[in-house]
Design a protein around this nucleic acid. Structure first.
Lengths: 291, 291
DNA sequence: CTCAATTACGCGCTGCGTAAGGATA
DNA sequence: TATCCTTACGCAGCGCGTAATTGAG
């Protein structure tokens, strides 16, 4: 159960290939083969079936453990190193695309005005990676946005001890093509849209919607990117409906028609994530963002 | 951040000595010294101050991570091995001393009557170790007992993914020496006993009591064992008060006087812990115990 | 027959033990 | 001075790469 071997194992499983894993990890095929053999010998059972390369039941079980385990290991390392690092004025903030809404941007501006020396490096990333980025110390702060029932916390992947605080909640609107029969309504109930075609995007994942509202929500088009403008364009062209926070839709609707959601009440919730921070600029910014 | 080095580090920190850790781990003093040096070089900072040997701030931080991390590693290993093991009729059950109360004992008897081939090996252990025993696969089932507010879950040390289920809750009694001025009352409020002398025992840790009720509860005598008879004898001799589930005090009170607690309402709660179990005797027993 | 994983084998590096050295109470 | 950790050094075993071999599609 050497983490080194565990890393190799998850890489092989991800690629479904020893040679591809070898290329990624900078080893020879042979070394990978020996590492997997060593892990299997250690546990006394087969973890991968060969040709095609795919995990056995025991291997699948190990994969479920390995990811979080390796993440915690990196997180522990980052946390220990953080205790020794002196407080920096450069703060790296990772955010999901919709997390930087007007409220967050305003608070960030206020914090920068209050602390002129503060330097912020903002980057966007997918929600699944956000907690890991913060845990591993590759970002001091994380802003995670997602769809939730009002006051309910987001479902973030477990990644060790981390503080979370609610930052903002914003009502959602249904984004429709202008010619849509329901466009122009003052409010819409999601239950009435359960059979309409939907866009499946990371900004509004249909799996999450089904969790919150119920089955249905057939996929019209799947968009793997997280660009709001693209989503709006796709919606305008009638590829499907989607939910966005009101502030993400241009005033007046632009090319699309935006209708508030009447029921069930859902919000785009933003949460602030951070590991234990040293006193200094980082805590100040965290406090400013949490409001 | 090799787990091997981490293990060495926690052992050295626990003993406050390189040589003692060497003896425990079966290495030479020199090897331990090299391992600690390797870990410190890897992280680029000092983890231990020598002479006396004690952790630096960074070392303390690492210690907080290392324990849970190593536990999860062992737990993952146990879990993977469990998927391959065939269901056994021998079930190892670990329980805190008071967890095996009449309710639990009766359910266990019913389960054994229903499944004649069932073989149960019961052992007692302290609450802190219980979750680790189950996580590491050294026991299939764990029965954790502790003091809690009604319907509130116990505070168990975090030890990876594990199922918990409430099993029973039993009212608590205050155990007093027969000559105590408050003996003979029909009910007592804990707030009135906050200045009395208390026994500090693992069966009723005063820290937990202070968490639930408030500061106070001065220590009369600290007993590190978990033998109920000894606690009753100490209470009878006037060394201090303690709380026990009613069923743990002999009918009539025996050498002590038992008075129900009126407020706040507290119970001795028993929870069942287990990792993902293979279908078979283990799941059947778990279901029987959970009621 | 081909491609990909396994096995054989040799070498270099890591990490241990022995033993000498150094720091601290 | 005694104790306990550190450093020097040599050896053994582990793990990698090269290259030959096996085996599945």
């Amino acid at each position: 159960m050497d983490p080194h071997l565990l890393t190799t194992f998850v890489t092989v499983a991800r690629h479904g290939s020893f040679s591809a894993a070898a290329a990624e990890l900078g080893y020879t095929q042979s070394a990978i083969s020996q590492q997997i053999a060593a892990l299997e010998a250690d546990l006394g059972l087969a973890l991968l079936r060969r040709r095609p390369v795919e995990p056995t039941p025991a291997g699948r079980r190990l994969l479920e453990h390995a990811g979080p385990l390796l993440l915690r290991l990196r997180a522990a390392r980052a946390d220990v190193l953080r205790t020794a690092a002196e407080p920096s004025h450069l703060l790296r903030v990772a955010a999901t695309p919709l997390a930087v809404n007007p409220v967050v941007a305003a608070r960030l501006a206020a914090a920068r005005a209050a602390q002129p020396r503060l330097e912020v490096r903002l980057r966007t990333c997918r929600a699944e990676r956000l907690a890991a980025l913060v845990a591993e110390g590759r970002a001091e702060l994380g802003l995670a946005g997602g769809i939730a029932a009002p006051s309910d916390p987001l479902r973030l992947p477990e990644s060790g001890p981390m503080s979370t605080a609610g930052v903002s909640e914003e009502d959602l609107v249904v984004v429709l093509e202008p010619g849509h029969p329901l466009a122009g309504r003052a409010r819409l109930r999601l239950a009435d849209l359960i059979d309409a075609r939907w866009l499946d995007t990371p900004l509004c994942p249909l799996t999450r919607l089904r969790d919150l509202v119920g089955d249905g929500f057939p996929v019209g088009l799947e968009y793997e990117g997280d660009d709001v403008h693209t989503v709006l364009t796709l919606a305008a062209a009638g590829h499907g409906l989607t939910l966005l926070p009101a502030s993400a839709v241009p005033a007046g609707g632009g090319p699309v028609c935006a209708v508030p959601v009447a029921a069930p009440r859902l919000v785009h919730r933003v949460e602030l994530l951070h590991a234990a921070l040293p006193p200094g600029p980082a805590t100040a910014l965290a406090a400013a963002l949490a409001g």
